[in-house]
């Protein structure tokens, strides 16, 4: 564990050096993420300023959901962005083999190989929205609420990573996994609004099958004092279960790779 954190730290330092070499790119990368989210938020504001609330949800409350989702997404973006391109950038050109001849876990190596700094934009937007909503809604900002948010954001981030890990592992069979990842990942958009806006089946899908709801809707409901009972605390367990299943599937895929080699 200590060894792995030391190696990871080395990767982070190297990444930072590259980043400093291309400072302008870094700046544009982060700004572009902020702008892209900004456009959606302005549109949402433009509409919601005309009605007091939607089905009991005010603009600030919806922004809280949106902000929490963005933070979880940011964790995935920062630590696991390389899962998107495993087929295109590693398996197809034969680069994946080098992970297998090194004395560390290949998944760890893949993730550490490219830490994605563009995620800074997600964190800026996410923190901004959650902070704004908390202040506007006069929610208590205490150690307890902050710890709750951190726990939920980390769980949400792990859920994101788990789902991307499963879709990334399909690259061991079909090589180009980006369309698969894209399809599954896109369903996280449902989780930017209260799940009650949708047909019941969408709520079930986003809770039990592709549990993005635990990254946004459930923790926000709890913070807002809605009575959702134990569902408020389920996220860490769901995260644990998803990442376990995802890792198993990854290992299964890795075995398949070992028998075909390409």
């Amino acid at each position: 564990m200590l060894r792995y954190s030391k190696i990871y730290w080395y990767f982070v330092v190297q990444r930072f050096k590259i980043l400093m070499e291309y400072r302008l790119n870094f700046f544009i990368g982060s700004i572009s993420t902020v702008l892209f989210q900004g456009a959606s938020i302005i549109a949402m504001w433009a509409v919601l300023r005309q009605v007091p609330s939607i089905q009991g949800w005010t603009l600030e409350q919806i922004l809280l959901i949106y902000g929490l989702l963005t933070l979880s997404k940011g964790i995935n973006h920062l630590f696991a962005d390389n899962l998107w391109v495993i087929g295109r950038d590693y398996i197809r050109p034969g680069q994946f083999d080098r992970f297998l001849v090194r004395p560390i876990n290949p998944l760890f190596h893949l993730l550490a190989d490219r830490i994605c700094h563009d995620a800074i934009g997600d964190f800026i937007v996410g923190f901004g929205l959650v902070g704004y909503a908390m202040v506007k809604l006069q929610l208590p900002i205490t150690l307890a609420s902050i710890s709750f948010i951190i726990l939920m954001v980390i769980s949400g981030g792990i859920i994101f990573i788990a789902l991307n890990l499963i879709t990334a592992a399909t690259a061991f069979w079909i090589m180009d996994s980006i369309p698969v990842t894209n399809l599954v990942f896109s369903t996280n958009e449902f989780a930017q609004y209260p799940l009650t806006f949708y047909h019941r089946s969408v709520g079930i899908l986003l809770t039990w099958l592709l549990p993005y709801g635990f990254a946004s809707y459930y923790p926000a409901s709890y913070l807002l004092g809605h009575s959702i009972g134990w569902m408020a605390w389920l996220a860490p367990l769901i995260a644990l279960v998803s990442i376990t299943i995802a890792y198993r599937f990854w290992v299964f895929g890795l075995k398949h790779y070992g028998s075909t080699g390409s």
Partner: peptide
């Protein structure tokens, strides 16, 4: 993208 010395440092770290 890394300078050779940085790459070697990383490899040395991985192999301890």
């Amino acid at each position: 993208d890394l300078a050779l010395i940085e790459s070697l440092n990383l490899v040395a770290n991985i192999y301890e």
